[in-house]
Design a protein around this nucleic acid. Structure first.
Lengths: 229, 229
DNA sequence: GTGTGTGAAGGGTTTCACAGCA
DNA sequence: TGCTGTGAAACCCTTCACACAC
């Protein structure tokens, strides 16, 4: 039986998800370095600031080119620009929120998204009580009309914060409306057709992993440490 | 140079983080199956419901024992109880929130945490405007007194939703106060000493990974599909 | 026949170690 | 000397395939 879903990416060397996530960390590390007016930075320093190894950092970068100078390190501005290009952060993205509850409201106000160029342009919900109200400066729109709204705002990325029971149905509709990438906070793993990207951000899984760490630690020799994701 | 942090766990066969996270998914799948009054379930069905392979499910479970019956599958109630024991979900956990902003408020109201036995018993903040106010039925306490509060409520797990700039400092203090596991939503990777578990739930990284997926897809042959986490 | 449990194979990611360049 | 870029080795995780139990 074939794996029904996979983490495939469409690139020749096939970049792993882990590498992409680390690039995102390096990107922020470089922003900080630039803010501190550092002109160069070494793989070693990038690694230390992120709890990784220098070899890992160099290997990740090497998939995309040779950005450093031997003996010197990396030019912070150059590397920042290059990683921005790689991740597609040299532009802004219009995004929409689906599900105007507590979590969704918090995300719309989450400054980091805006700072990095992810701009909420549309908020959708299906609760008649909520439709017409506002979050920030966005009026909540009826999910029933999602297709036209998504098209009008040229949105390809959706953030989903609906109850678990509704999530898969909502996502199917979003995909039909042309959404190509989904950040899912509903506490269920949603599945999507090929060509659409999802990230299931399941906080219950994360906290249960902590529960496991505490539980298994006490029982056996408490050797280790643990930063995980 | 050694890896300064690692995802080590303290168990003889050394269970991978990926396996633990899947167990958490299986746990919820079993809850659903039980709610539907199914008496048994096969590895194949658990796999299908989670976008995995049957072999993966069986392998994950085999690290902890032989819970199924050949030819029949798994007894839903038994397996649910067993995974609960493994993950430490056969009990409740007192947890605390640090940072009473939008995100923190949303998490305190997040029903799924309570349902799975993670009970917010304490909310901490250092903003004088917020201290004394309430979230749900919890009054916000001064972070300055975190040590005694954490001890009083016997809390070992903290959920951190403070601004990025404050996160590492706050976490250091929490660790000193006896916290052993941290779910970090601040948009920086925090580092902790051995013996403490962290999960960095960085939503910016996740959305940037989606940006990468969209960016790299257009450029090359758009072969693939994508569920990731 | 059905579906688990598991050693072995396969594939992918991280680490090592060193050549090469400033 | 200092630090990058990278093949090769090591390691880990997933998948395969089949013995075995019901």
């Amino acid at each position: 039986m074939p794996r029904p879903t996979s983490s495939a990416r469409a690139d020749c060397p096939k970049i792993s998800d882990a590498t992409v996530k680390r690039l995102s960390k390096y990107y922020r590390t470089l922003q900080n370095a630039i803010a501190q007016e550092k002109a160069t930075i070494s793989s070693d320093e990038i690694a230390r600031l992120n709890g990784l190894t220098a070899a890992q950092v160099r290997k990740d970068l090497s998939f995309f080119g040779a950005f450093g100078r031997r003996g010197l390190g990396y030019n912070t501005l150059d590397l920042h620009r290059n990683i921005g290009q790689i991740l597609g952060l040299h532009r802004t993205w219009n995004i929409c929120l689906v599900g105007a509850g507590n979590m969704g409201t918090a995300l719309v106000h989450f400054k980091q998204f805006t700072d990095q160029g992810f701009l909420f342009r549309l908020v959708l919900d299906s609760d008649p009580e909520k439709i017409g109200q506002s979050i920030g400066n966005l009026m909540i729109q009826d999910f029933e009309n999602c297709e036209e709204q998504i098209k009008r705002e040229k949105i390809r990325i959706a953030v989903v914060t609906v109850p678990g029971a509704a999530a898969q149905r909502v996502v199917d509709r979003l995909v039909a409306a042309g959404i190509k990438a989904i950040l899912n906070f509903a506490p269920v793993t949603i599945l999507v057709p090929p060509g659409v990207s999802v990230r299931n951000e399941n906080m219950v899984i994360e906290i249960e992993a902590l529960s496991y760490a505490l539980t298994s630690k006490g029982v056996h020799r408490p050797r280790a440490n643990t930063p995980l994701s």
